[in-house]
Design a protein around this nucleic acid. Structure first.
Lengths: 191, 191
DNA sequence: CTTTCATGTTAGTTCCTACTAACATAAGTT
DNA sequence: AACTTATGTTAGTAGGAACTAACATGAAAG
């Protein structure tokens, strides 16, 4: 199969453990074991646990292509919101380990916060612009910023719920909830 | 003013620190200092850090009166959803420290999870029952369980967003978002 | 064959943290 | 005055975790 080099093995192992337990609760010994290397090797590749964390963070942050999103708008409420929602959910999903890690750590470094909060902010701008324009076109009436924030928060709630639901045993399918929410939202704001 | 007894001082200090940093990241020395007592006193009142955590958890879990909620239903979509939403947001708010703590700890004890997940589950039942009845009355068409889950997830998203927003500087008022969301939701599911 | 390089192993240092023991103090109770 | 009770102080133990030093090994490269 694909044989990973040592650094990648360590980075992969660390991000999984960090997201499961948070930075402080994970030991370097644990990471080394999961990566299948000795603890000494870990310290030879990364000067410290902190440094390993930073490298892992950088490696696993993901941001979508907003240009394509802007260009792909069709000015049909349900279709556009579906597209934006899909992209946002996808981005949240890809960043899930980092997001979980962020929740679990107090404050490692304000720069991480800034980096991590970057993409929700971009989505907020996109939605703000979109609702503004739709209001000008007379398709909706509500305040664009409020709508943008509400739509983002709703999506984030659905995302977190789907994460937590893996542990629980609700019969409800979260994908259906997401689709339903977008439909309700589109219908609920239409004039 | 009101002078707290020693145990309450320690419990209050611990819940604040636990919610800020998570169980592992907080030291008993830190808790004692914040409580204004010596570390020794802490151990005299609580046999261990773990024990202190459990007492603090028990003290600060809050559950609303569901009986009153069921009895107060008026079978008017927007009014009822507003009432349920208010109660849910209020419950989330009162449990915010415990919820944050829960996010930050890996797994201290599955019993805590069960206790903490109890009230969202009760709200889910309430909403399921409500939407089921509203469907029977012909007021809505969507699947009741999906709606219940979606409404809960939306609310949770708004709650988390309001917590995070304290750190950020968005101009949007989260209370307005909550009210808007309920209105959109009510309008979006009406036949 | 020898050198180099990445890795493993083992032992150890330093620091922090939960938790304890022993004694001191100060206020209230009997 | 003697006793009780709650608290503080100081010193210390035991264990864990980050990180290091020194040496061993084994495979690839010259």
């Amino acid at each position: 199969m694909c044989v990973l080099n040592t650094e990648d093995k360590i980075l992969n192992a660390s991000i999984v453990l960090f997201s499961q337990k948070g930075f402080n609760a994970v030991t370097t010994k644990e990471i080394a074991k999961k990566a299948g290397v000795s603890e000494m090797t870990l310290f030879r590749h990364f000067e410290s646990k902190q440094n390993l964390f930073e490298k892992a963070f950088d490696k696993f942050v993901f941001s979508p292509k907003f240009r394509a999103l802007y260009d792909g708008l069709e000015w049909d409420l349900e279709r556009d919101l579906n597209k934006i929602c899909s992209s946002y959910q996808d981005t949240l999903y890809r960043n899930q380990k980092i997001i979980l890690m962020h929740f679990k750590n107090d404050e490692l470094n304000p720069d991480f916060d800034a980096t991590l909060f970057n993409f929700p902010n971009e989505f907020r701008k996109l939605l703000g612009y979109y609702f503004e324009e739709m209001k000008n076109r007379g398709a909706i009436r509500e305040n664009p910023e409020t709508l943008a924030m509400s739509f983002l928060a709703t999506n984030f709630g659905l995302f977190i719920t789907s994460l937590v639901m893996n542990k629980l045993t609700y019969e409800t399918d979260i994908q259906v909830c997401i689709a339903t929410c977008v439909k309700i939202f589109a219908k609920g704001i239409t004039c």
